[in-house]
Design a protein around this nucleic acid. Structure first.
Lengths: 110, 110
DNA sequence: TATGTTTATCGTAATATTGCAATATAAGTA
DNA sequence: TACTTATATTGCAATATTACGATAAACATA
């Protein structure tokens, strides 16, 4: 017990959950919002922007990258990370889809 | 250490992370998708639809409700839960907002 | 080569999450 | 009242996450 029973859910559900989960932490929200704010995607100052230690930020960046939410690499002595549009679009489409379906229903009894 | 340092992030970031995190589990994705599929929102069979025990499903439902993603109550001997549109719309708007901003940038160097 | 700068990784402690058996609660029904 | 059905809560074990100090790795430059 303790581990998520991924094997019982569909691949789609697991993939979505992984993507969504990666954004389910305020530090990672903050990272994405910072990447959105800066013009340049070379943002070696990301550690200074967050109230967390350098190893912790590095770990959060890794999680975002593993999930596919950001892409990029270290280039010399600077990070070059940016948001991966495809992942954001996937999330946008998913919630738009749910929202549309809900509007069509309009039989909420609660 | 170990606990998320919510006090260092904005209220908006924390609220969003909480909402998103609630959907960051395949079982809770499956629950929302099931609620979307059934016409009726009286869905006492939700336990039978999921590959998890009744207490576990109950716990996931509670988390979704606490996060504001579903609303409703037990009515007699049946659950009456349904998706809370407001929460879904909030997520839809957030990702649509990010997506729009990304399109305007188009300076991805990665 | 030695030094400084930047990011990643390792190791570990604190905390949170997941899942379920057992049990409790609540409501309907015989 | 006793019984059945449906959901919630409790308690606990297994696992995952979060955070950071220490250290490593990669690169630039003196």
């Amino acid at each position: 017990m303790g581990a998520t029973k991924t094997e019982h859910f569909t691949d789609k559900q697991n993939a979505l959950a992984t993507l969504i989960k990666a954004l389910g932490h305020p530090a990672r929200i903050a990272i994405v919002e910072y990447l959105l704010k800066v013009d340049d995607c070379i943002c070696g100052d990301i550690v200074n922007e967050l109230p967390l230690s350098q190893p912790t930020v590095s770990q959060h960046l890794k999680e975002l990258k593993t999930a596919g939410l950001i892409k990029g690499n270290v280039e010399g002595n600077a990070i070059c990370y940016c948001i991966d549009e495809k992942a954001i679009d996937k999330l946008r489409d998913y919630f738009a889809h749910i929202s549309t379906k809900l509007e069509k229903k309009k039989n909420n009894c609660c």
